[in-house]
Amino acid sequence: MSEAVLCVTDLTVYYGDELALDSVGFSLTGGKLIGVVGPNGAGKSTMIKAIVGSILPNRGKVEVFGSTAKRALRRITYVPQRGSVDWDFPVTVRDVVAQGRYAHLGLFRRFTTVDRDLVERSLELVGLVQLAERQIGELSGGQQQRVFLARALAQQGDIYLMDEPFAGVDAATESAIVEVLRSLRDEGKTVLVVHHDLSTLREYFEELVLINRKLIAHGPTDKVFTPDLLQRTYGGKLAVFSNKDTTLVSA
């Protein structure tokens, strides 16, 4: 095991009186694609938001490369759910991607050629160069998701946290996104993805985090993707059929 890239301890979040996330902890190493799995309302989005600092956890600590400093936490890039923004906002595809650079530019530093190149390269990587001048609302759902991905790429973080990037996206875009994520992993980045489709888990991710308010399991997909653990994650809402080498599930 190499050094821990992202280490989460005792992460606890309350919404009002309701416990949304109960003392979740795990640590991730670099160069991995990791899936986050759990039923609706299990606190998956809450966990992602608490890690990136979008909501303040009631308890717990997030360490990046062994540091809790703000500067270290900027190395986390966040790809929110597509439904979280108003798509009629007056902003073009390129403007949104350029927001990824704000993390490094702050309020006053000007965009340099380096920043501009990064924005263009990110647009190229997700195949949106031709649409760069379009207002974001004119894009299809899959294209919008790729805008978010490009923004994260432009931010040049080391850890990517993605909240349901495949929701409402067609198969072609899904495989295109997966390609980008795999190349990120091959560069040694850590990519954590909230995912709903149990049938593609094995194919996409080498590690899984199963949560249902609490951490149910964390480990290599082969070890963790078992009927027993899935049953515990999903409660009674899951039918599991398994024999020696295949596991069929339907949520």
Binding site: K49, V52, G53, S54, K70, L73, R74, I76, T77, Y78, P80, S84, V85, D86, F89, V91, V96, Q99, Y102, A103, L105, G106, L107, R151, Q155
Partner: peptide, 22 residues
């Protein structure tokens, strides 16, 4: 003018803006 980036990013996508440290 001074806070333009903060204002625009947090108006468009507050969750992401927070993750940038805004």
């Amino acid at each position: 003018a001074v806070f333009y980036r903060w204002l625009s990013a947090s108006s468009f996508d507050p969750g992401f803006a927070k993750s940038l440290g805004i």
